[in-house]
């Protein structure tokens, strides 16, 4: 690939933009997966605590 050919700018922009969009899409998908997983863990922990609450320290 010669970088001095005419219109090579169009090639670079299209490859660059495509990479940007695809990496952005992957990042968003991964980020949504992580935040959903965290929210689920948090909810499950809270549900477990609700079913058998921790013993009070001094059962006065």
């Amino acid at each position: 690939m010669s970088f001095t050919a005419p219109h090579v700018g169009f090639v670079l922009v299209s490859y660059g933009f495509s990479t940007l969009v695809l990496c952005g899409l992957t990042a968003i998908v991964l980020w949504q997966a992580r935040s959903a997983a965290n929210r689920l863990k948090d909810l499950e922990a809270r549900a477990v605590r609700r079913r058998k609450p921790a013993k009070p320290v001094n059962p006065a």
């Binding site: 949504q32 689920l40 809270r46 549900a47």
Partner: peptide, 25 residues
């Protein structure tokens, strides 16, 4: 991406149901 997104969507539906249960609980 589709597999990851599907797993996320399934998690989101469980979250929605658990939140509803939690609020009514």
């Amino acid at each position: 991406l589709h597999l990851i997104a599907m797993r996320t969507e399934i998690m989101k539906r469980r979250i929605h149901n658990m939140e509803q249960a939690e609020v009514q609980g």
